[in-house]
Design a binder for these strands. Structure first.
Lengths: 234, 234
DNA sequence: TCCTAGAATGACCACCTGGTCACTTTGCTG
DNA sequence: CAGCAAAGTGACCAGGTGGTCATTCTAGGA
Protein backbone atom coordinates (compact mmCIF):
# COMPACT_ATOMS: atom_id res chain seq x y z
CA UNK A 1 0.00 0.00 0.00
CA UNK A 2 1.32 3.41 -0.84
CA UNK A 3 1.38 6.15 1.75
CA UNK A 4 -1.60 7.67 -0.01
CA UNK A 5 -4.05 4.90 0.86
CA UNK A 6 -5.94 7.10 3.24
CA UNK A 7 -6.17 9.84 0.64
CA UNK A 8 -7.60 7.52 -1.99
CA UNK A 9 -10.48 6.61 0.31
CA UNK A 10 -11.67 10.20 0.34
CA UNK A 11 -14.59 11.07 -1.89
CA UNK A 12 -13.60 12.38 -5.32
CA UNK A 13 -14.73 15.94 -4.67
CA UNK A 14 -12.51 16.33 -1.63
CA UNK A 15 -9.60 14.69 -3.41
CA UNK A 16 -9.91 17.10 -6.31
CA UNK A 17 -10.20 20.08 -4.00
CA UNK A 18 -7.04 19.13 -2.13
CA UNK A 19 -5.07 18.43 -5.27
CA UNK A 20 -6.17 21.68 -6.88
CA UNK A 21 -5.11 23.72 -3.88
CA UNK A 22 -1.80 21.89 -3.64
CA UNK A 23 -1.04 22.39 -7.33
CA UNK A 24 -1.81 26.07 -6.90
CA UNK A 25 0.50 26.34 -3.92
CA UNK A 26 3.42 24.63 -5.64
CA UNK A 27 2.85 26.60 -8.85
CA UNK A 28 2.91 29.92 -7.03
CA UNK A 29 5.69 29.17 -4.58
CA UNK A 30 7.88 26.46 -5.97
CA UNK A 31 8.77 23.52 -3.76
CA UNK A 32 10.91 24.96 -0.99
CA UNK A 33 8.80 28.05 -0.57
CA UNK A 34 5.47 26.22 -0.63
CA UNK A 35 3.97 26.03 2.86
CA UNK A 36 2.01 23.13 4.25
CA UNK A 37 0.59 25.44 6.92
CA UNK A 38 -0.74 27.85 4.31
CA UNK A 39 -2.10 25.01 2.23
CA UNK A 40 -3.90 23.49 5.19
CA UNK A 41 -5.33 26.88 6.05
CA UNK A 42 -6.56 27.42 2.49
CA UNK A 43 -8.26 24.04 2.56
CA UNK A 44 -9.78 24.37 6.00
CA UNK A 45 -8.56 20.93 7.03
CA UNK A 46 -6.21 19.92 9.83
CA UNK A 47 -2.51 19.72 9.23
CA UNK A 48 -2.41 16.24 10.67
CA UNK A 49 -4.82 15.03 8.01
CA UNK A 50 -2.69 16.27 5.16
CA UNK A 51 0.31 14.50 6.63
CA UNK A 52 -1.72 11.34 7.09
CA UNK A 53 -2.60 11.49 3.39
CA UNK A 54 0.83 12.10 1.93
CA UNK A 55 3.35 11.48 4.70
CA UNK A 56 5.41 14.57 3.95
CA UNK A 57 5.65 17.66 1.80
CA UNK A 58 7.76 15.73 -0.65
CA UNK A 59 5.19 12.93 -0.73
CA UNK A 60 2.50 15.42 -1.66
CA UNK A 61 4.70 16.87 -4.35
CA UNK A 62 5.50 13.46 -5.78
CA UNK A 63 1.82 12.64 -6.01
CA UNK A 64 1.06 15.86 -7.86
CA UNK A 65 4.13 15.55 -9.98
CA UNK A 66 3.26 12.09 -11.22
CA UNK A 67 -0.25 13.24 -12.04
CA UNK A 68 1.20 16.09 -14.07
CA UNK A 69 3.66 13.91 -15.94
CA UNK A 70 0.75 11.68 -16.90
CA UNK A 71 -1.17 14.66 -18.25
CA UNK A 72 1.76 15.73 -20.39
CA UNK A 73 2.43 12.25 -21.68
CA UNK A 74 -1.23 11.85 -22.61
CA UNK A 75 -1.29 15.19 -24.35
CA UNK A 76 1.86 14.46 -26.33
CA UNK A 77 0.60 11.07 -27.47
CA UNK A 78 -2.63 12.66 -28.60
CA UNK A 79 -0.92 15.31 -30.74
CA UNK A 80 1.43 12.78 -32.24
CA UNK A 81 -1.53 10.64 -33.24
CA UNK A 82 -3.65 13.50 -34.52
CA UNK A 83 -0.99 14.87 -36.80
CA UNK A 84 0.62 11.64 -37.86
CA UNK A 85 0.34 12.04 -41.60
CA UNK A 86 0.38 15.81 -42.02
CA UNK A 87 3.41 17.50 -43.55
CA UNK A 88 6.28 18.51 -41.32
CA UNK A 89 5.54 22.19 -40.83
CA UNK A 90 1.88 21.61 -40.23
CA UNK A 91 2.79 19.05 -37.59
CA UNK A 92 5.09 21.54 -35.90
CA UNK A 93 2.45 24.24 -35.95
CA UNK A 94 -0.11 21.84 -34.56
CA UNK A 95 2.26 20.72 -31.83
CA UNK A 96 2.86 24.28 -30.80
CA UNK A 97 -0.85 25.02 -30.81
CA UNK A 98 -1.36 21.93 -28.66
CA UNK A 99 1.24 23.24 -26.26
CA UNK A 100 -0.64 26.49 -25.94
CA UNK A 101 -3.88 24.61 -25.42
CA UNK A 102 -2.24 22.54 -22.68
CA UNK A 103 -1.12 25.68 -20.90
CA UNK A 104 -4.64 27.05 -21.15
CA UNK A 105 -5.98 23.93 -19.52
CA UNK A 106 -3.24 23.43 -16.95
CA UNK A 107 -1.51 26.75 -16.41
CA UNK A 108 -0.27 25.81 -12.97
CA UNK A 109 1.25 22.57 -14.14
CA UNK A 110 3.20 24.55 -16.68
CA UNK A 111 4.27 27.00 -14.00
CA UNK A 112 5.67 24.18 -11.92
CA UNK A 113 7.54 22.90 -14.94
CA UNK A 114 9.11 26.32 -15.55
CA UNK A 115 10.17 26.64 -11.94
CA UNK A 116 11.73 23.19 -11.93
CA UNK A 117 14.06 23.94 -14.82
CA UNK A 118 16.18 26.53 -13.04
CA UNK A 119 15.41 25.97 -9.37
CA UNK A 120 17.82 23.29 -8.32
CA UNK A 121 16.24 22.13 -5.10
CA UNK A 122 13.09 20.61 -6.54
CA UNK A 123 12.72 16.93 -5.74
CA UNK A 124 13.10 14.74 -8.82
CA UNK A 125 14.42 17.65 -10.81
CA UNK A 126 17.21 15.73 -12.51
CA UNK A 127 15.08 12.71 -13.35
CA UNK A 128 12.45 15.10 -14.59
CA UNK A 129 14.77 17.00 -16.89
CA UNK A 130 16.04 13.71 -18.26
CA UNK A 131 12.45 12.67 -18.95
CA UNK A 132 11.68 15.94 -20.68
CA UNK A 133 14.79 15.57 -22.78
CA UNK A 134 13.67 12.10 -23.69
CA UNK A 135 10.18 13.30 -24.61
CA UNK A 136 11.58 15.96 -26.84
CA UNK A 137 14.06 13.61 -28.45
CA UNK A 138 11.47 10.90 -28.99
CA UNK A 139 8.96 13.34 -30.30
CA UNK A 140 10.98 15.67 -32.49
CA UNK A 141 13.71 13.39 -33.82
CA UNK A 142 11.48 11.05 -35.81
CA UNK A 143 9.47 14.03 -36.94
CA UNK A 144 12.55 15.68 -38.38
CA UNK A 145 13.79 12.43 -39.89
CA UNK A 146 10.44 11.86 -41.59
CA UNK A 147 10.48 15.44 -42.84
CA UNK A 148 13.86 14.92 -44.43
CA UNK A 149 12.84 11.63 -46.00
CA UNK A 150 9.71 13.13 -47.46
CA UNK A 151 11.74 15.95 -48.95
CA UNK A 152 9.98 18.61 -46.91
CA UNK A 153 13.20 19.45 -45.12
CA UNK A 154 16.62 20.05 -46.61
CA UNK A 155 18.39 16.75 -47.08
CA UNK A 156 21.68 18.02 -45.63
CA UNK A 157 20.22 19.07 -42.26
CA UNK A 158 21.93 17.78 -39.16
CA UNK A 159 19.17 16.12 -37.18
CA UNK A 160 20.47 16.98 -33.71
CA UNK A 161 20.97 20.63 -34.58
CA UNK A 162 17.53 20.84 -36.09
CA UNK A 163 15.93 19.25 -33.06
CA UNK A 164 17.77 21.69 -30.82
CA UNK A 165 16.56 24.62 -32.87
CA UNK A 166 12.96 23.43 -32.85
CA UNK A 167 13.13 22.74 -29.13
CA UNK A 168 14.45 26.24 -28.51
CA UNK A 169 11.79 27.95 -30.57
CA UNK A 170 8.84 25.87 -29.38
CA UNK A 171 9.81 26.18 -25.73
CA UNK A 172 10.39 29.89 -25.97
CA UNK A 173 7.07 30.40 -27.72
CA UNK A 174 5.26 28.71 -24.85
CA UNK A 175 7.25 30.65 -22.28
CA UNK A 176 6.45 33.88 -24.07
CA UNK A 177 2.79 32.91 -24.01
CA UNK A 178 2.74 32.58 -20.24
CA UNK A 179 5.46 34.93 -18.98
CA UNK A 180 5.48 38.61 -19.79
CA UNK A 181 8.39 40.31 -21.57
CA UNK A 182 9.66 37.17 -23.22
CA UNK A 183 7.86 37.67 -26.52
CA UNK A 184 10.23 40.37 -27.84
CA UNK A 185 7.24 42.60 -28.35
CA UNK A 186 5.55 40.42 -30.93
CA UNK A 187 2.36 39.99 -28.95
CA UNK A 188 2.45 36.39 -27.86
CA UNK A 189 1.96 36.85 -24.12
CA UNK A 190 -1.56 35.75 -23.22
CA UNK A 191 -2.68 36.32 -26.77
CA UNK A 192 -6.08 35.11 -27.99
CA UNK A 193 -6.53 31.96 -30.01
CA UNK A 194 -6.50 33.63 -33.43
CA UNK A 195 -3.51 35.77 -32.66
CA UNK A 196 -1.59 32.82 -31.28
CA UNK A 197 -2.29 30.92 -34.45
CA UNK A 198 -1.09 33.77 -36.60
CA UNK A 199 2.09 34.21 -34.56
CA UNK A 200 2.81 30.50 -34.80
CA UNK A 201 2.55 30.69 -38.56
CA UNK A 202 4.86 33.69 -38.70
CA UNK A 203 7.54 32.11 -36.56
CA UNK A 204 7.49 28.72 -38.22
CA UNK A 205 7.48 30.28 -41.67
CA UNK A 206 10.66 32.23 -40.91
CA UNK A 207 12.18 29.08 -39.53
CA UNK A 208 11.28 27.26 -42.70
CA UNK A 209 12.55 29.83 -45.15
CA UNK A 210 15.59 30.83 -43.10
CA UNK A 211 16.96 34.26 -42.41
CA UNK A 212 19.54 34.51 -45.15
CA UNK A 213 18.90 36.08 -48.52
CA UNK A 214 19.37 33.58 -51.34
CA UNK A 215 22.19 35.62 -52.80
CA UNK A 216 25.45 35.83 -50.85
CA UNK A 217 24.74 32.39 -49.56
CA UNK A 218 27.70 30.07 -49.65
CA UNK A 219 31.07 30.31 -47.89
CA UNK A 220 29.67 31.33 -44.56
CA UNK A 221 32.63 30.17 -42.57
CA UNK A 222 35.68 32.02 -43.86
CA UNK A 223 36.49 35.03 -41.75
CA UNK A 224 34.48 33.70 -38.88
CA UNK A 225 37.24 34.70 -36.55
CA UNK A 226 39.03 37.85 -37.51
CA UNK A 227 41.32 38.44 -34.60
CA UNK A 228 42.82 35.04 -35.07
CA UNK A 229 43.98 33.10 -32.04
CA UNK A 230 41.78 32.93 -29.04
CA UNK A 231 39.25 35.43 -27.96
CA UNK A 232 37.59 35.59 -24.61
CA UNK A 233 36.86 39.16 -23.96
CA UNK A 234 33.50 40.82 -23.47
CA UNK B 1 24.23 58.85 2.04
CA UNK B 2 23.07 55.46 0.90
CA UNK B 3 22.55 52.71 3.36
CA UNK B 4 25.79 51.18 2.17
CA UNK B 5 28.10 53.95 3.44
CA UNK B 6 29.54 51.78 6.15
CA UNK B 7 30.19 49.02 3.64
CA UNK B 8 32.05 51.33 1.27
CA UNK B 9 34.50 52.23 4.02
CA UNK B 10 35.63 48.63 4.31
CA UNK B 11 38.88 47.74 2.62
CA UNK B 12 38.50 46.40 -0.92
CA UNK B 13 39.50 42.86 -0.06
CA UNK B 14 36.79 42.51 2.55
CA UNK B 15 34.22 44.13 0.27
CA UNK B 16 35.03 41.69 -2.50
CA UNK B 17 34.92 38.75 -0.12
CA UNK B 18 31.48 39.73 1.15
CA UNK B 19 30.08 40.38 -2.31
CA UNK B 20 31.43 37.12 -3.66
CA UNK B 21 29.86 35.13 -0.85
CA UNK B 22 26.56 36.95 -1.23
CA UNK B 23 26.44 36.39 -4.99
CA UNK B 24 27.14 32.73 -4.37
CA UNK B 25 24.34 32.50 -1.83
CA UNK B 26 21.76 34.16 -4.07
CA UNK B 27 22.89 32.17 -7.10
CA UNK B 28 22.52 28.88 -5.28
CA UNK B 29 19.36 29.64 -3.35
CA UNK B 30 17.42 32.32 -5.14
CA UNK B 31 16.17 35.28 -3.16
CA UNK B 32 13.58 33.87 -0.78
CA UNK B 33 15.59 30.80 0.06
CA UNK B 34 18.88 32.63 0.54
CA UNK B 35 19.77 32.87 4.24
CA UNK B 36 21.44 35.81 5.92
CA UNK B 37 22.38 33.54 8.81
CA UNK B 38 24.13 31.10 6.53
CA UNK B 39 25.86 33.90 4.66
CA UNK B 40 27.11 35.45 7.88
CA UNK B 41 28.36 32.07 9.03
CA UNK B 42 30.19 31.49 5.73
CA UNK B 43 31.85 34.89 6.05
CA UNK B 44 32.75 34.60 9.70
CA UNK B 45 31.38 38.05 10.47
CA UNK B 46 28.59 39.09 12.80
CA UNK B 47 25.04 39.28 11.57
CA UNK B 48 24.70 42.77 12.93
CA UNK B 49 27.53 43.95 10.70
CA UNK B 50 25.93 42.68 7.54
CA UNK B 51 22.70 44.46 8.43
CA UNK B 52 24.64 47.64 9.19
CA UNK B 53 26.14 47.45 5.71
CA UNK B 54 23.02 46.81 3.68
CA UNK B 55 20.03 47.48 5.92
CA UNK B 56 18.14 44.36 4.91
CA UNK B 57 18.28 41.24 2.80
CA UNK B 58 16.63 43.12 -0.02
CA UNK B 59 19.17 45.93 0.31
CA UNK B 60 21.98 43.45 -0.11
CA UNK B 61 20.29 41.94 -3.12
CA UNK B 62 19.74 45.35 -4.70
CA UNK B 63 23.42 46.15 -4.30
CA UNK B 64 24.49 42.93 -5.96
CA UNK B 65 21.81 43.19 -8.57
CA UNK B 66 22.92 46.64 -9.70
CA UNK B 67 26.49 45.47 -9.86
CA UNK B 68 25.40 42.61 -12.09
CA UNK B 69 23.31 44.77 -14.37
CA UNK B 70 26.34 46.99 -14.86
CA UNK B 71 28.46 44.01 -15.82
CA UNK B 72 25.94 42.91 -18.41
CA UNK B 73 25.49 46.37 -19.84
CA UNK B 74 29.23 46.78 -20.14
CA UNK B 75 29.59 43.43 -21.81
CA UNK B 76 26.83 44.14 -24.31
CA UNK B 77 28.28 47.52 -25.27
CA UNK B 78 31.66 45.93 -25.83
CA UNK B 79 30.34 43.26 -28.18
CA UNK B 80 28.32 45.75 -30.09
CA UNK B 81 31.39 47.90 -30.61
CA UNK B 82 33.71 45.02 -31.46
CA UNK B 83 31.45 43.61 -34.15
CA UNK B 84 30.07 46.85 -35.51
CA UNK B 85 31.00 46.38 -39.14
CA UNK B 86 31.00 42.64 -39.48
CA UNK B 87 28.29 40.92 -41.51
CA UNK B 88 25.07 39.93 -39.80
CA UNK B 89 25.70 36.26 -39.16
CA UNK B 90 29.21 36.86 -37.94
CA UNK B 91 27.87 39.43 -35.50
CA UNK B 92 25.33 36.97 -34.21
CA UNK B 93 27.92 34.26 -33.79
CA UNK B 94 30.21 36.67 -32.00
CA UNK B 95 27.42 37.81 -29.72
CA UNK B 96 26.63 34.23 -28.80
CA UNK B 97 30.30 33.51 -28.14
CA UNK B 98 30.45 36.61 -25.98
CA UNK B 99 27.47 35.33 -24.04
CA UNK B 100 29.25 32.07 -23.38
CA UNK B 101 32.37 33.97 -22.30
CA UNK B 102 30.28 36.06 -19.92
CA UNK B 103 28.88 32.93 -18.32
CA UNK B 104 32.39 31.56 -17.95
CA UNK B 105 33.45 34.68 -16.09
CA UNK B 106 30.28 35.23 -14.07
CA UNK B 107 28.47 31.92 -13.81
CA UNK B 108 26.65 32.92 -10.64
CA UNK B 109 25.37 36.14 -12.11
CA UNK B 110 23.87 34.12 -14.93
CA UNK B 111 22.37 31.69 -12.42
CA UNK B 112 20.63 34.53 -10.65
CA UNK B 113 19.30 35.77 -13.98
CA UNK B 114 17.86 32.36 -14.81
CA UNK B 115 16.20 32.07 -11.43
CA UNK B 116 14.66 35.50 -11.72
CA UNK B 117 12.87 34.73 -14.96
CA UNK B 118 10.46 32.19 -13.57
CA UNK B 119 10.58 32.77 -9.82
CA UNK B 120 8.02 35.47 -9.23
CA UNK B 121 9.04 36.65 -5.80
CA UNK B 122 12.38 38.17 -6.69
CA UNK B 123 12.61 41.84 -5.87
CA UNK B 124 12.78 44.03 -8.99
CA UNK B 125 11.83 41.08 -11.15
CA UNK B 126 9.38 42.98 -13.31
CA UNK B 127 11.63 45.98 -13.82
CA UNK B 128 14.42 43.60 -14.55
CA UNK B 129 12.52 41.66 -17.19
CA UNK B 130 11.52 44.94 -18.81
CA UNK B 131 15.16 45.96 -18.88
CA UNK B 132 16.21 42.69 -20.41
CA UNK B 133 13.52 43.02 -23.01
CA UNK B 134 14.78 46.50 -23.77
CA UNK B 135 18.36 45.29 -24.05
CA UNK B 136 17.37 42.59 -26.45
CA UNK B 137 15.21 44.96 -28.49
CA UNK B 138 17.85 47.65 -28.62
CA UNK B 139 20.56 45.20 -29.46
CA UNK B 140 18.93 42.85 -31.93
CA UNK B 141 16.48 45.11 -33.73
CA UNK B 142 19.02 47.44 -35.34
CA UNK B 143 21.20 44.45 -36.06
CA UNK B 144 18.40 42.80 -38.01
CA UNK B 145 17.46 46.01 -39.75
CA UNK B 146 21.03 46.58 -40.84
CA UNK B 147 21.20 42.99 -42.04
CA UNK B 148 18.14 43.50 -44.20
CA UNK B 149 19.43 46.76 -45.59
CA UNK B 150 22.77 45.25 -46.47
CA UNK B 151 21.00 42.45 -48.26
CA UNK B 152 22.38 39.80 -45.93
CA UNK B 153 18.90 38.95 -44.70
CA UNK B 154 15.79 38.32 -46.75
CA UNK B 155 14.13 41.62 -47.55
CA UNK B 156 10.65 40.38 -46.70
CA UNK B 157 11.51 39.36 -43.12
CA UNK B 158 9.28 40.66 -40.37
CA UNK B 159 11.67 42.33 -37.95
CA UNK B 160 9.78 41.52 -34.73
CA UNK B 161 9.43 37.86 -35.65
CA UNK B 162 13.09 37.64 -36.56
CA UNK B 163 14.14 39.26 -33.30
CA UNK B 164 11.95 36.84 -31.40
CA UNK B 165 13.49 33.89 -33.17
CA UNK B 166 17.03 35.08 -32.54
CA UNK B 167 16.24 35.78 -28.92
CA UNK B 168 14.81 32.31 -28.51
CA UNK B 169 17.79 30.58 -30.07
CA UNK B 170 20.51 32.67 -28.41
CA UNK B 171 18.93 32.39 -24.98
CA UNK B 172 18.40 28.68 -25.28
CA UNK B 173 21.95 28.16 -26.41
CA UNK B 174 23.25 29.87 -23.30
CA UNK B 175 20.84 27.96 -21.10
CA UNK B 176 21.94 24.73 -22.71
CA UNK B 177 25.55 25.70 -22.02
CA UNK B 178 24.95 26.06 -18.29
CA UNK B 179 22.04 23.71 -17.49
CA UNK B 180 22.18 20.03 -18.26
CA UNK B 181 19.60 18.31 -20.48
CA UNK B 182 18.62 21.43 -22.36
CA UNK B 183 20.94 20.89 -25.31
CA UNK B 184 18.86 18.20 -26.99
CA UNK B 185 21.88 15.96 -26.97
CA UNK B 186 23.99 18.11 -29.26
CA UNK B 187 26.80 18.56 -26.75
CA UNK B 188 26.52 22.18 -25.71
CA UNK B 189 26.38 21.74 -21.94
CA UNK B 190 29.69 22.85 -20.47
CA UNK B 191 31.42 22.26 -23.77
CA UNK B 192 34.97 23.46 -24.40
CA UNK B 193 35.76 26.60 -26.35
CA UNK B 194 36.30 24.92 -29.69
CA UNK B 195 33.24 22.76 -29.44
CA UNK B 196 31.10 25.71 -28.43
CA UNK B 197 32.34 27.57 -31.48
CA UNK B 198 31.51 24.72 -33.76
CA UNK B 199 28.04 24.29 -32.29
CA UNK B 200 27.37 27.98 -32.67
CA UNK B 201 28.25 27.78 -36.33
CA UNK B 202 26.01 24.79 -36.84
CA UNK B 203 23.01 26.36 -35.21
CA UNK B 204 23.34 29.74 -36.85
CA UNK B 205 23.92 28.15 -40.22
CA UNK B 206 20.68 26.19 -40.02
CA UNK B 207 18.94 29.36 -38.94
CA UNK B 208 20.35 31.17 -41.94
CA UNK B 209 19.51 28.55 -44.52
CA UNK B 210 16.18 27.61 -43.04
CA UNK B 211 14.72 24.17 -42.56
CA UNK B 212 12.65 23.91 -45.73
CA UNK B 213 13.87 22.26 -48.90
CA UNK B 214 14.01 24.67 -51.81
CA UNK B 215 11.63 22.54 -53.81
CA UNK B 216 8.12 22.43 -52.51
CA UNK B 217 8.75 25.92 -51.32
CA UNK B 218 6.07 28.26 -52.49
CA UNK B 219 2.42 27.86 -51.64
CA UNK B 220 3.18 26.73 -48.12
CA UNK B 221 -0.13 28.01 -47.12
CA UNK B 222 -2.67 25.86 -48.88
CA UNK B 223 -3.91 23.21 -46.54
CA UNK B 224 -2.24 24.91 -43.64
CA UNK B 225 -5.60 25.25 -42.04
CA UNK B 226 -7.80 22.33 -42.74
CA UNK B 227 -10.70 23.45 -40.67
CA UNK B 228 -11.19 26.29 -43.15
CA UNK B 229 -12.48 29.63 -42.00
CA UNK B 230 -10.01 32.38 -41.36
CA UNK B 231 -6.40 32.35 -42.03
CA UNK B 232 -3.95 35.03 -41.33
CA UNK B 233 -0.83 33.98 -43.03
CA UNK B 234 2.64 35.33 -42.81
C1' DT C 1 48.02 56.73 29.31
C1' DC C 2 43.42 57.94 28.91
C1' DC C 3 39.31 59.06 26.33
C1' DT C 4 35.98 58.57 23.05
C1' DA C 5 33.65 58.02 18.41
C1' DG C 6 32.29 54.63 15.66
C1' DA C 7 32.49 49.82 14.25
C1' DA C 8 31.70 45.04 15.45
C1' DT C 9 29.07 41.87 17.91
C1' DG C 10 25.74 38.02 19.08
C1' DA C 11 21.96 37.22 22.33
C1' DC C 12 17.48 38.04 21.62
C1' DC C 13 12.74 38.70 19.35
C1' DA C 14 8.50 37.48 16.91
C1' DC C 15 7.28 34.64 13.54
C1' DC C 16 7.36 30.76 10.43
C1' DT C 17 8.67 26.01 8.99
C1' DG C 18 7.80 20.66 8.39
C1' DG C 19 6.40 17.17 11.19
C1' DT C 20 4.31 14.47 15.42
C1' DC C 21 1.01 12.33 18.31
C1' DA C 22 -2.20 12.07 22.21
C1' DC C 23 -6.65 13.08 22.03
C1' DT C 24 -11.54 13.66 20.09
C1' DT C 25 -14.99 12.72 16.71
C1' DT C 26 -17.20 9.89 13.47
C1' DG C 27 -19.71 6.24 11.65
C1' DC C 28 -20.33 1.42 11.22
C1' DT C 29 -21.50 -3.21 13.47
C1' DG C 30 -23.58 -6.18 16.57
C1' DC D 1 -27.73 1.79 22.32
C1' DA D 2 -22.85 0.18 23.18
C1' DG D 3 -18.42 -0.70 21.51
C1' DC D 4 -14.73 0.14 18.72
C1' DA D 5 -11.72 0.93 14.87
C1' DA D 6 -10.60 4.39 11.84
C1' DA D 7 -10.34 9.23 10.68
C1' DG D 8 -9.72 13.89 11.98
C1' DT D 9 -7.52 17.22 14.78
C1' DG D 10 -4.48 21.08 16.48
C1' DA D 11 -1.36 22.04 20.34
C1' DC D 12 3.19 21.22 20.43
C1' DC D 13 8.19 20.54 19.03
C1' DA D 14 12.86 21.61 17.39
C1' DG D 15 14.85 24.37 14.36
C1' DG D 16 14.96 27.91 11.01
C1' DT D 17 14.00 33.01 9.39
C1' DG D 18 14.96 38.34 8.93
C1' DG D 19 15.89 41.86 11.84
C1' DT D 20 17.30 44.67 16.37
C1' DC D 21 20.14 46.85 19.72
C1' DA D 22 22.51 47.16 24.23
C1' DT D 23 26.97 46.04 24.94
C1' DT D 24 31.89 45.42 23.85
C1' DC D 25 35.89 46.29 21.29
C1' DT D 26 39.22 49.06 18.83
C1' DA D 27 41.88 52.54 16.82
C1' DG D 28 43.57 57.16 16.87
C1' DG D 29 44.10 61.80 19.02
C1' DA D 30 45.34 64.46 23.06
Amino acid sequence: MPVTERFNNLDQAKQRKILAAAVEEFAEQGFMQASMNRLVHKLGIAKGSLFQYFGSKEGLFRFIFEHAVDLVRQSLRQVKRDTADADFFLRIRRSLAAGVAFIDRHPQVYQIYLKMIFQEKFPYRTEFLQQVHLFSAEYLTPLVEAGIERGELRADLDVATTVFLLDAVLDRFLQAYSVSFLDAGMGIYRAGEDQVKERIERVIEVLRQGLGSSEADPAPRSGADQKGSKRRHV
